[in-house]
Design a protein around this nucleic acid. Sequence first.
RNA 1: GCGCUCGUAGCUCAGCUGGAUAGAGUACUCGGCUACGAACCGAGUGGUCGGGAGUUCGAAUCUCUCCGAGCGCACCA
Length: 577
Amino acid sequence: MNYIEPKTHLAELFRQAVAQVAPDSAVAIELDRPKQASHGDYACNAAMQLARSLKKNPREVAGQIIAALPASERVEKVEIAGPGFINVFLKPVAKQCLVGHVLAAGADYGRSNTGRGEKVQIEFVSANPTGPMHVGHGRGAAFGASLANCMAFAGFQVYREYYVNDAGRQMDILALSTWLRYLELNGEFVAFPGNAYQGDYVKMMAEGIFALHGDRYKRAAVDVGAGVPAAADAPDDHLDALIANAKRLLGPDYDYIHGYALEEQLGDGRNDLTEFGVVFDHWFSERTLHDAGLIDRAVAALQKNGHIYEQDGALWFRSTAFGDEKDRVVKRDNGIYTYFAADIAYHLNKFERGFDKVIDVWGADHHGYIARVKGALQAAGADPDRLIVALVQFAVLWEGGQKKSMSTRSGQYVTLRELRGEVGNDACRFFYVLRKSDQHLDFDLDLAKSQSNENPVYYIQYAHARISRVLQAWGGDVRDLADADVTRLEHVSELALLNRLAEFPEVCASASREMAPHLVAYYLKELAADLHGLYVACQFLVDDEALKQARLALIHATRLALKNGLALLGVSAPDQM
RNA sequence: GCGCUCGUAGCUCAGCUGGAUAGAGUACUCGGCUACGAACCGAGUGGUCGGGAGUUCGAAUCUCUCCGAGCGCACCA
């Protein structure tokens, strides 16, 4: 028998039956998988939904629907239960034939076309290139990458992008920090500001420049500190004055320092993410927005629609007209565009590039920013509903019962690289997506590091490895398993595994639709549990040749689903551990 | 003060668009390897789904309200 997804098949049967019983009704046919096996394989609640409009008892309506249900060779029996559920029991063969389907689909098992080829851009991480990635960025990276994989698997055309904030004040602060450290190497000591970047990586960049160019960028400390207000009174003014002096004293050389620091940090982040299995189709430079005049154009578009006014020498966007609590500055009184203005231009540019849907993965602290950006898009004549913001809550690292706090500026943080080194990429990727994104994540270092049965990622990988070992011990060609007589799969553990296996495509589609890759992680734990259960209940390498083939075909199919699912999460599927 | 997110077993968390007796891991108490890897499996203990009200055949899920937690309310990015 050819495999047909039972849900699709049954939904069609019910649709025909309901059309007879209640021709005018427009209820959507819903089929659930009951939690209890005694409630059958699928349950339909249509009778209860129709009872009111038909003014009949739900159980009576259920009886009529069942009577009108077309016959199917895949259905064992149908019964009325509880307040009016219609429970459907499938014939075993309708489940067993799934095995052949999975083996034929291979790496594509679980793939769907719910995305219909829609072009989606997912922008994620987008951390300022002012220091190493830390564990906070890791969650956005793991989430974004897994979401992108899930959506691609669900039939979307996915484009992964990283927005590089290479134009703002933070980059100037990094350039200044690097230069001050460089001056120290040259014997010129300027008090290092407390609000500059403190990390050792800044010193390493300074040493790098010194090794390449000696004292070429050396300037006298007295000149660097000339006319700078005291740090204690006005730390920000102090920093800005130092930056201004640096630009003046270095002239064109400032661009070199700035560019060096940018390239170093960007390269470091790219390597880090690549090792983490997180790759992008494009790294979009904020600077190019300025250089290409796209910000001028975006602001002009707002202005043309009458949403810009001038006050106190600055240009303001009337975002209160779009639900924001306060109007926002887009161009400061010093003539420099705000980050917000660049972001408007960036998002308009995303739409101009032809994406049907644009997803931003942001840290939860940016939630207040959503209304502003959407308002600006609307004001500029774009459809704000095409922008979807996925907020990811913070990850908090725990070790030995202690919370580890972090701050980029002070240089006190656990880097993503350190975390990966300690717990490994697989456990890291898995733990990051194990919670739904709007839930705070307690990242338990001790648990992630434990190479024991307590660690869920090993539980799943072990299931995969176990299957591989059995197939190795068997020694045959897995391609021959496609011909196995799957009707021999009758054991309760085998049927349970078949049911679970059949859910995989739905899970993948849900993970994409709800932007919830954690659904895949939870599913894989259950799939692994069913496999382990079967492993203990039944022996695979038995003397009965037909039964052996059938069981091997089943676990081979299971291994494919495990591998496909783990791949969505960026976790490896080892053949031995 | 206003806004966003959250509150489920001792702990960490799932629970899909409202469905039947609310689940898993962990911890605790028992039990299972001369079979393909015990990094595994099985059984038990453990709940006023933060409190209250509403919507309906039916609510952990939707609405309102109160309590509590995190985050945000810049001419920063």
